[in-house]
Every structure is written in C-alpha cells, then in structure tokens.
Design a protein around this nucleic acid. Structure first.
Lengths: 331, 331
DNA sequence: ATGTGATTGGAAAGCGTTTTCCAATATAGA
DNA sequence: TCTATATTGGAAAACGCTTTCCAATCACAT
C-alpha cells in the first residue's frame, strides 16, 4: 500500500498537479475557493500526507535543524535541548539530534550527516576542542558557505553566530563572593582543557583568586562528567591532605560527583569540605546540601539559539550572564 | 555558492552520473578500480556531500528514525533518548526528536511531522492516553500501513511492536518487599490516569497491598512531574494527618518532588515519612537519602527500541523486568 | 574466426514535489 | 463591441539522486 501522492489527490479531484500543490501546500497563488474545497476534500479522503523529502528537494529547504550535544542524558544538555525544541517548534522546524558521546570524531560525523541532510541550520552545544583550522571547522565552514546557518552555544566554533555565555564573568563573580565571605582555601576541579568552556571558567576562578592575593591549592583536571568529578575530588583530597577547602568544580555534574566521592570516604559537605558547581541544572532541586553554583538559563539559551539559527535576520545576541547562587554547600 | 552535486562530480571525473553514483554511494555494482579512484578524487576535490533528501526520494528510505518523548529534560526520557541515539547510530540512522511537552495534541503533530518526513520508524516513549480508535492511533496505523515501523516503549499504542516493561510486576515486587519488612501504612502518589504506565504501576501497588490484606490509606493523583509529586505529597500529608506512612510514588521524579515537599514543611525522610519511586533515574546517584525504587535499564531500553525499529526481522522482544532497590528512603 | 556469457559504462526513466511559463478565460474600460 | 489587463488552471521543467535497461566490450572455450 504505497503512500498517497499529490498526483493521486489531483487526479481524484480532477485538477492538475500544480493546482493541487497550490491548494494544499502554501503558495502565493490561491486557486478559486470552489476548486480548493474539492482538492482539500480529496486529500482528506485519501489521507494524503505531503512528502517532506520531495518538498525539500523542490524548495531547497528541509525544515530541519540539527542539534549537536555531547550527551543528551546530561541535564545540562537535555535542558538546552528542550529549549531548542521549543524554539524550533515556533518556526515549524523539526529537530535532528546527535548525541556524540564517547566516539572521538562523532561530532564531525554528526555535522557531516546534518550537512548531508541539508538541515537549514546546525546548533552546536558544548564547545569542542576548537583548534582553528580543524577538520570540524572546515566542515562547518563549507556548510555555512552552502547557505547553512551555524550557531554555537558558548564557545566560538569560529563559524557562524555564537551565543556568548558569561563563563568567565560568572566564575569570577562566584569566587569573588566566596572570598568576600571569608573563604581563603580553594582548589579547582577542572575538565578537559580542550573545551573552551572549561578554560574560560578556570580562568575566571584563578583571576578572582589572584585579585584577592590568593592562589588555588590544587588544580585537578578530569572528565567533564559525574565520574570525572568523583575521581577528581578524591585526587584533590589527597593533595590537600584532607584539610578543609572549597572545591571549585567547573560544572554542576562534576560537583555532584565530587560530593558523592567525599561522602564515600566519610567526609561531609560543607563540614569537612565545601563544593561549588556551575550551570544550576534542574537536578539541584533535589540534592542536599543545596549546591552553590552559577545559574544559567539553560532552556532559554536553547530557545535563543534556535531563534538565532532560524530567524532570517538575527544578529549577534546579548551575552548570557550567569547569576551566583550561594547555597548550603559552602556553609 | 551552490552545493556540489553528483552531476558536477561526474562531469569533473569524466564519467556518467550512474557511474559516479555507483562509486560514491554504495551499490551492488562496483565500477573498475581505476575509474573509482578518479571519481573519489573528484568528489574529494570538489567537496561533494550527497544530498540525503534526494537520496531518500530516489531510494524511498530516509535514514531517519523519529523519537517522541514527553519532556526531553526529564532524566527518564533523556536516558532513553541516549539509548535510542546509540542504537540508531549502529544502523547509520539519524534521530529526529520531538519533545511534546505541554501542548495537548503535540504528540499527534509530532507523529504527523514524522510521517511527512517519511522516517523509517517512529519510537514512542512514555505511553500516552491510548483510547483505542483515537486520532493518534489512526495516524500511527496509517503510517504503519505505508511501511513505517512503530515501536512503543512500555505501553501499547495498539500499533506496531511494543517493548513491554514490567511495570506491574515491578510495582508488585516493590510493595511486597516493603510489606515483608514490616511496613503496613501506605499511600499512593499517582499520575494522570490516562497513562498506561501509571495504571499498571498503581495496579501493582494495590494488588500487592490487597494480597497482604492491606489497602492504601490515600491515593492522590497529580502530574507525572516533579511539581506533581510536590503537590501530591502535600495533599497526601493532609489526608494522612501527618502520620507516618510510606508514599508510593509512581515514578522517581514525583518521588523526588515529594521529598522536597516534605522537607519544605519540616518533615524528614524516612523519619517522618517514607517515600519510594520507580525507574531508578541517574539523578538518584546524588540525592540523599537514597531513594528506594525499581530499577529499569533505561538506556538499554532505548537501544532495544531502536534495534526493534530498525532491524528488518525483529520480533516481539523479551519484556524488561524491573529490579527492586531498597535504599534509605524507606529506612 | 566464432559464438557465449559475463562484465562494464551510460542513457534515461523515475522518486514527489514546486514553480515558471503559457494559454485561456474573465473583467474592466472605452 | 473591442481591446487591454487581470486572473486562473495546467503543462512541463526543474530539484539531485538511484536504478533499470541497453549496448558495448572483454575473456574464453570452441
């Protein structure tokens, strides 16, 4: 049972292909109402559904927007994805998702696949190692040259529009506030140095410390994940020889991993060690103690990215500013 | 700067369209190596990227699989999505995501959009109100009739393959274990009765209670979300007049909402009230007290669903069985 | 040489739309 | 009544590929 085609509808309604197309799938020309009614009736009766592939080919616009994230099960990314989805719906676009997970060149593969599917736009969430002149950048550039729009959330891919995130400022403000509250002993739980986000935040931490005449007692880098935070915290604890300090994690999931790690060795937060995060992921509603962090409007970021990607005349947007939230994990 | 087409590559390599196609985009016929090399070189030099839309049209297969979830930022769904993504990659498919969120008929819209895009398969996660003969079911049926595959995770849509989840058995086992441990006072935090998942789990709870000669002290229904759990817990507390009992939430996010609610009125868990969940979402790693729940292999479920959807000869699968995890939230 | 069968590259017919022309008809103005 | 001008429906040419034929070439045994 082959799908009903436009030709079938046209035949059934006794009109031409052109007329049927004009009636059913928006056009600037509106056939006479009498005919339109007949065509619509036929379409309904036969259960016609336009073939988006064929339309894409003819119109050279697919109605698709590609979203690249590292791990869709990470609350940071799934919140952004939700926003992107919302934004896309407002423009009548469907979201093509790529969760690039562990595979090293998965990100490149995803971009290639999106380019192949001729998505109208590509949104990159979570800045990747961005060696200028990288294969990824070349691919994105080619995509952009062919008319595709590129939006990068928080971290220039070097191509297209970038939605700037106040990573540096947020990190700076966080540590500044903590110092004002009298904390002096800090250690940094960092992530892969290849990520721009990581570099920006770490720089914010250290600059704030420096401004206060302080320096981190330790800097440990690990994966940008829960497990990364877990092992980084343990390593850090060794370096600090168990002495109380404030662990500045470079994002919330790492911070949560760190807290779990500290608990697993019998330490309490904030009693024996303090911890901070970054992002304010929704998960934090349910964790105790409340995690001190920098709030980012994740969902709105996704929606904004979608708008930037899909709105014809969108310009460089206002930067997203983070808001420091002091909670119990820092006493 | 228009995109490079296959015709362009063929011309540049001095071969026909047919030959170029055979060399570049898999075919059962392999042109002579000498020619193949020339074509590949041209493709590389010109930066050719096949137009997936055109291929889809010609092959009548899009390489797309549609995933419908209620809320991609809910850890339950994002874990499943991760699995689907993995599974899809193994079959070289891209994932089209629809997070249907608040809009009432968004689910139907999503299915229509997927049908229009001629996705090779549609995966429905999170059973929706499934009035047999509903518009949604009709739409799915039509999709299936046109050769699309439909997989429903945990809750028959009445169309296509269903991946059965041991909701009833898991709920039954959970309560049975709790009763064995001496608990006698229970209340149920239920979700929208339209959801099959909800009905199955609640039935499991009540059947287990009945078997032990018990009955729930209260049954409160609310949204299937964190907020739903929050307000349901408060309502429940009223009905119980603050007396200690075990709140059986119908899923983890509701349970977490419930715990937050209880805390907000100064009650402790499990001291003043006990709480259980269902699903074992990854979030639970970081919450205290540990939530007693029924573990489901969410990511694997997604992967299995993808396999079922994409593997040519897949049959009704083994049901997924839940595993009871007793943790601190029940003492 | 000759016939047989396998192998190869290419021409052309789709796939299901949109959209540009064109011709035909209707409308208005004189 | 007749031309000038809109308005309308339809034929056909794209869009970028795959795939079915077809004809040409080749190897090989006769």
């Amino acid at each position: 049972m082959a799908a009903v085609t436009l030709a079938g509808v046209a035949r059934h309604a006794g009109v031409s292909l052109a007329t049927a197309s004009r009636v059913l799938n928006g056009s600037d020309r509106r056939p006479a109402e009498e005919i339109a009614v007949r065509v619509r009736a036929s379409a309904l009766e036969l259960g016609y559904i336009a073939n988006a592939q064929a339309q894409a080919l003819a119109r050279s616009s697919t109605g698709l927007v590609g979203l690249v994230v590292h791990d869709i099960s990470d609350p940071y990314f799934s919140s952004i994805a939700r926003g992107v989805q919302h934004g896309a719906r407002q423009f009548n676009r469907q979201v093509l998702l790529a969760s690039t997970d562990p595979a090293e060149n998965a990100e490149l593969e995803a971009v290639s696949a999106f380019a192949s599917h001729r998505t109208d736009a590509i949104i990159l969430a979570g800045s990747r190692k961005q060696s200028t002149g990288s294969v990824l950048e070349k691919e994105l550039q080619r995509y952009a040259n062919n008319g595709g729009r590129v939006v990068t959330i928080g971290g220039g891919s070097g191509v297209g529009i970038s939605l700037p995130i106040g990573n540096y400022d947020g990190a700076l403000a966080l540590v500044t506030e903590l110092v004002e509250r009298g904390l002096t002993r800090f250690a940094i739980l960092s992530g892969p140095p290849g990520l721009k986000t990581v570099r920006d935040r770490v720089r914010g931490f250290t600059d704030a410390l420096q401004a206060a005449g302080l320096a981190p007692l330790a800097v440990v880098a690990d994966n940008f994940t829960h497990d990364g935070g877990f092992s980084a915290a343990l390593a850090c604890r060794k370096e600090l020889e168990g002495e109380r300090a404030c662990l500045l994690a470079v994002n919330d999931v790492m911070a949560l991993g760190a807290i779990t790690a500290l608990r697993s060795v019998g330490m309490t937060v904030p009693g024996d060690m303090m911890v901070t995060g970054f992002d304010d992921i929704p998960t934090l509603r349910d964790t105790t103690p409340g995690l001190t962090t920098v709030h980012l409007p994740l969902e709105r970021m996704g929606e904004t990215a979608a708008r930037l990607a899909l709105h014809p005349k969108s310009t460089e947007p206002e930067p997203i500013v983070g808001k420091v939230l002091l909670r119990d994990s820092t006493g």
